[in-house]
Design a protein around this nucleic acid. Structure first.
Lengths: 91, 91
DNA sequence: TTAATATATTGAAATATTTGAATGTTTAAA
DNA sequence: TTTAAACATTCAAATATTTCAATATATTAA
């Protein structure tokens, strides 16, 4: 994983709202609906949409359209690659 | 590790200059001098000082004064705790 | 087709981050 | 003690991020 990608993922992780979104996946098996995220956070719908976009742009979340709804799935592979990059920092 | 700490470390990691600083530790055994970081980056001394401060504030780097110089050591424990928090995101 | 629901986009304000010039502080050397 | 070296701080400018109101788009229901 190149440094620009590490930077982008780190930015995606550098906000407590977005961290909370990712943590919600543990509770809801492995998929989360956009509407659930709106309920989770104390923010307006456009703000939540913005946070989800950053997570999708970083490829930490994979969006799947289901009619009017969007289902998000955690991208474990990208998360693993990011963690592997961090582990490489250690001698 | 609480979410504010995760946020702070993620922010520290969300800049290519700071990522480059951390990666330099692999080459230089496990300690890096401030002056070496100044040489490494194409930035002015105050900017480098700012970046190092963010890494120290996030506790990713431990500073040790040596006369006029400062030696930085990578804080592997904090890095490990951060990685552990990310691993917890996965189901 | 019309209305309602779910999500995205735009635009603007508030705040945060990045950078460097100028300057300050601390420590060592002359 | 004067000077030089290493690093920090302050301030301001440029840029990026966060947030929300307003509005747009897409899809489903009536």
């Amino acid at each position: 994983m190149d440094n620009k990608k590490i930077e982008r993922i780190s930015k995606a992780l550098s906000d407590v709202s977005r961290i909370a979104i990712l943590q919600e996946f543990k509770k809801k098996k492995d998929c989360l609906y956009c509407a659930e995220v709106n309920d989770l956070l104390d923010l307006t719908q456009p703000s939540v949409s913005h946070h989800l976009k950053l997570l999708v742009d970083a490829e930490l979340l994979l969006p799947e359209k289901e009619g009017r709804n969007i289902k998000y799935v955690l991208n474990q592979q990208v998360l693993d690659e990011y963690i592997a990059s961090l582990n490489e920092l250690k001698d």
